[in-house]
Structures are given as structure tokens and as C-alpha cells.
Amino acid sequence: MKTNLDLINECDNFPYYENGPEEYTKLRSTCWELHLEEGSGPYGYMRQSVVESMPWDHDVWQIDSERKSIAPVPKRYSHTQGEIIRETLEKAKTESIFQILRGWRNELYPVHGPYSSRKPMVSMERAGSALFGINTYGVHMTAYVCTPQEGMKIWVPRRARNKQTYGGMLDNTVAGGLSTGEKPFECLVREAAEEGSFSEQLVRSNAKACGTVSYFHIRDARAGGEAGLLQPECQYVFDMEIGAEVIPKPGDNEVEDFYLWTVDEVKRALAGGQFKPNCAAVLLDFFIRRGILTAENEKDYMEIVSRLHRKLPFPTP
């Protein structure tokens, strides 16, 4: 059975250092940095194997082996940085170089620049984000019902078993990636309709923003594609209390079923390793905020709280 710290270690599984983000410099001995024009960077960490396999066009990419840095150079060509990245990933997909690109989404993820800028530096295909090791963003919501007999009960979906990533595992009530130009709450409204058939009015009236959960994940085989790719992430988290009459239903092919479980049932599923790693982390954050997980009943409480809010190495919006 997994402990709560085991669950954190499975999600936030890049080595954790108490000294803070400066310890990410240890990555530079094994990874390459993604740089962009008009930015201090880096904006992503790339595995050596990815750099060796990617079909770089040296007319539009600056590859510095000494500094171990990669940068698109639009001044050498008529394309923008984003177009250079897109064409490179499309070529890699056409040539079947990376398994992860089989899950091509036609969905763009932002790469954010300096903290003072609200606009992303560039956008790239979601399926290629882990190849470049950029920060990615999403929304996760826990929907719950307060019952007089059994106390709080949580709606838990099971991911479709044929889903490329973490097929058949348990998830948060609603979750999804944040695309370029999308605001977190609007993304939540969309995902809630698609995944749980929740009405827009219900979500807008009842969903409450509850901060973020951030972690640095190293993908394993369950994530689909190559294992070992780097995926730092920040999730905007929401809670939504609903009445017993509201029953979520799968609205697309990504969710197989929903279960209404007591807190103890959710805890047992967590301990059994049934949840997708980042969904387990979001549920632990929910338990902490609700006073279910405390310093009195969890010996690793301080480390768990810290690890749920890791300082990521790249600029965030």
C-alpha cells in the first residue's frame, strides 16, 4: 500500500532539493536548454536522446553543443519561432521518430516569458510539450456532496481504458489541459461540460478557485510515449459542492464511469495506487485544505505540503 508521501514521490518525481530552484542547475549536466528570442530563458529542459533524434533544420535552429542549448532563429528564415517549432514537430511526427507524437492533439500549449508579460512567448503542439520539457498548465476540480449519513462524498471518474495516457486509472472529477489563450475558469467550464456533463450555470455558480498545485514530473510508460521525458506542471485547482440530485455523466470518450465515494473509500483507492499520479496529488491538496489530512495524522505533513507547491524552474504567467 502506498503512503501519502509515496503518492507525492510518484507525481513530483524529479529529485526534490530543499535549497530551492537553484538546484535545477544539476539538470544542465544531463539535459539541454530550450531558449527563445527576446527572453532570458531557459524555457524547457530536453533529454539528450530527444536532441539526438529530433530532425533539426540547422538553417533555422541554433544548436550550441558547448552550452547545451537549442533555440529557433526566425531571423534566418521567414517563419516565426512558433512556426519553426511546429514544422519540426510535424516532421518528427511524419517520420515516426517519437512515440509520444502518435497522440497528436492539434492543441497548442503556451510557453510563457518573463513574469511581467501576460502573453506567451510561443505556443507548441501539446503532444510535443514533454519533448521540449516546458511548463504545462491545466485545471482540476473536485466535486463533492455533503450527506447527513456518510459525511462528505466525492465524485471520482475512471478514465477510459483505451485512453493513451493512464488508461483505466482514476481521475479528479474534472481535469484538462490549459490551451494557449484560455483562462483557467473558462477552461474548467468547458472541461466540466465535456467530461462530466455539468451545466455551465452550475459550474459558474458553484465552482470555487482554491489556488494551484505544482510539481516536476518525469513521465513513465503509463503516460504514453517515451519514458523519462520531463514535464513540470502547474494545475489550477477548484472545488465544487453540489447537491445529491446532480449526477455527473461522461460527456465524451475520455471518461468511462463516475463513482460517488466516501472519503475513506477515496483514501483506500489512493493507497492502492489507483489514481493517476497528478490526480492523487490534487486530492491530497484537497484533503489538506479541508482539514482531513493534518500534521497530527500525517508524519510527512510538512514535506507533502511543500512538494505540492514546488517552485518550477521556468517563467510562469
Rank of each mutant, 00 (worst) to 15 (best):
G168H: 05
L27N: 13
H309W: 06
K93T: 03
F314A: 02
S123L: 04
K208A: 08
N4I: 01
W56D: 02
P148G: 15
R28T: 09
S306G: 05
Y236L: 06
Y16P: 10
Y24E: 15
K183P: 02
I97W: 04
R159V: 09
E303P: 12
R76T: 11
I84M: 01
Q201H: 13
N13I: 07
F258G: 06
L229F: 06
R118W: 00
E33C: 09
G44I: 09
S306Y: 08
L34W: 12
I154P: 05
P248L: 09
C279H: 06
Q99R: 07
E125K: 04
C234W: 13
D220A: 12
N253K: 13
A143L: 04
E38Q: 08
M152K: 12
T142Y: 00
G291Q: 15
G225F: 07
N278E: 10
S197C: 15
F287T: 00
W61F: 08
Y45H: 05
F185R: 06
E233P: 14
S306W: 04
Y115L: 15
W155P: 14
M152R: 14
P110G: 00
A280R: 01
H217L: 05
P250A: 07
L34K: 15
T147F: 07
R105V: 00
T136G: 07
R126L: 09
Y301G: 11
E38K: 12
P114I: 01
L230A: 06
D6A: 08
E150P: 00
R290I: 11
A280S: 12
I70Y: 02
F286T: 01
P184M: 03
T88R: 01
M152Y: 13
T3D: 11
L5C: 03
Y77T: 12
N106G: 00
A221Q: 14
L260F: 11
R159N: 09
K299F: 12
L308Q: 01
D64R: 10
A175D: 05
V73H: 00
L270P: 07
A271W: 08
A269S: 13
I134L: 02
G103H: 03
R28K: 15
K93I: 00
I134C: 05
W56R: 03
E245W: 14
A207Q: 02
L312M: 03
V111I: 14
E52F: 05
F98C: 07
I85S: 04
G39R: 09
K249L: 10
I97S: 06
D220L: 03
T3Y: 08
